[in-house]
Write a protein that binds this DNA or RNA. Sequence first.
DNA 1: ACCGGCAATCAACACGAGTTGAGGAGTTCA
DNA 2: TGAACTCCTCAACTCGTGTTGATTGCCGGT
Lengths: 335, 335
Amino acid sequence: MAATRADVARAAGVSPALVSYVLNGGPRPVSAAARERILQAVEELKYRPNKIAQSLRGSRTHSIAMLMPDHLNPHFAELAQAVENESFANDYMLMIGTTDNDLTRELSYLHSFMDRQVDGLLLISATAHPDVTSITEAGIPVVLLDRAPPGSLFSTVVIDNRQGAFAAVQHLLGHGRKSPVCISGPPDIEAIIQREAGWSDALTASGHSAPLPWRTSLSRQGGYAAMRAILAADVQPDSLFTVSDVQAFGAIRACVEAGQAVPRDISVVAFDGTEAGLFTQPRLTSVDQAVRSIARTAIDTLLGQIRDQDTSPVHHVLRPELRLGESCGCQTQRQ
Amino acid sequence: MAATRADVARAAGVSPALVSYVLNGGPRPVSAAARERILQAVEELKYRPNKIAQSLRGSRTHSIAMLMPDHLNPHFAELAQAVENESFANDYMLMIGTTDNDLTRELSYLHSFMDRQVDGLLLISATAHPDVTSITEAGIPVVLLDRAPPGSLFSTVVIDNRQGAFAAVQHLLGHGRKSPVCISGPPDIEAIIQREAGWSDALTASGHSAPLPWRTSLSRQGGYAAMRAILAADVQPDSLFTVSDVQAFGAIRACVEAGQAVPRDISVVAFDGTEAGLFTQPRLTSVDQAVRSIARTAIDTLLGQIRDQDTSPVHHVLRPELRLGESCGCQTQRQ
DNA sequence: ACCGGCAATCAACACGAGTTGAGGAGTTCA
DNA sequence: TGAACTCCTCAACTCGTGTTGATTGCCGGT
């Protein structure tokens, strides 16, 4: 249906090779007359090179893939948007696969990506299953996000989760809170462990002893259920640190339903700094991940490795900042 | 780097054709002995057919594309997740392009999708620019969402936006509210116009006259800015209908900052029924779009048209339901 | 007149798969 | 014994592109 290079060549009365030369700035000069006729034929036939054929011939698909947990967590949604913007700006097509923490689904997507010959791979908070690395040993450039295995062969882009969490909990304690509990996530995610550690650091640094974190899924429902469990337990916390914004949303909902006011009775600090947290009531105090910086850094290093296949892995560590709302007890401007 | 069909054939001591026969159940029988050796070679070499080559030969890429406004609106994020789940279940790769209401970007993505020979296209709330249809006249199956041009050549999946909005506003009036204002969106989106109409219908049906809607972007910032403008104007509304959940989030934030309690001073009803609205304070009363049904219907019809290229377009209309929270003034269970 | 060199062009191959027409080996039937 | 037929196998073509070795025509130099 669509016109091919041969059609253009026929219409212009030249060989197919010349058409390639003109469109790609081939290695040989082309006479002005031929160039003219070819460009006109391209215009008339609305010819566009078939990317599939180009990929087969050149083994470059100009597409990258990203594996992430889900779209429902606004943090990942924001990350997806930022990464897509960067890909688009660099003229790369982005394919997104969500895993929902299902190893089978994750491997299935990875195989699909390899079969489709993506030029690069972005792995976000994926599980560190050995099969994953065995698949990607095929030599395709990979950048890991939120996960930094020591001495990784892959490039990594992480934020300082431990320091970020530390600063957040320290801020809570600065408000005079004595017993912050922690709602945490799946312990197989490196970033989560680091945030738990930051929370624990802050407590011990102030002479408190850290209780066990309440681990649940990174979701509104998870935060909601965990907070209900906490409130049903005998200890009554005066403050809360969650390792994600969504968990805070759920937890605050649970507090309100139990008649506990936020931040009066329980003050809350979270982690992610999503846009959604700027419009809740009260506004969420949260560690800002600066997703746009993460996305830009990740895409830049990935595309860099695609250009120069054998560069040694780079490890970026970004520094998050605490974004203040009212959920921690601060009185921010009410205009 | 990766093994090819020729490698397998060589390892098994047969011709490449036989390998295809065994793996695809070719049109010719294969002896048990040969089949055995081939399968073993496939196993040993970890052979996986190159999808690029398959696509070039067969002109089927087993991938579909979706064009949507953005990832930041949780409604679209939920829709993306639902569509991706359906695609995955049907073994199709999904490519997502976001437009952010930028016609240039939209056309750019459409061209990219065509160049990559996607098998089908899902257009969500895209602008109805003539260039769009001219591109898609190439014969590739298309399903439109939230947009139903009368007598469209494309299949459509829409919800009854007008009826849904009507029911929502009627519910507001049932609470004794007299002057509901409307925060609306870009008027070039069919669905938005319909929701405005439903709002207007409900007002006139109750003997009220409908003022002009306040049009802004479908975002938290849009709702926030619009509500501030409304509160700054001379008329003081007692209730609000927004054409999207995100706008309600922003608007409620603006109300709270202005000292107006929701739902006491201003009761709110929105449209989308996102999960996020279940965890706000107060919970959002909203018209539930049932994204999973939409996604399933859309993918089913799209894949159907991919299988039978020349089926006539189908038009699905789903019926939304009002999901009650407390933002409208209802006292729902506080458990 | 002859040859070298340059500019311009083209035929042909490769990428990796699916598919088909042809043909070899073996079996059945006359 | 030869013909017809079945069962299996393979070489060869196709998809649409990028690239290269070869070829043509022309010009200038000796």
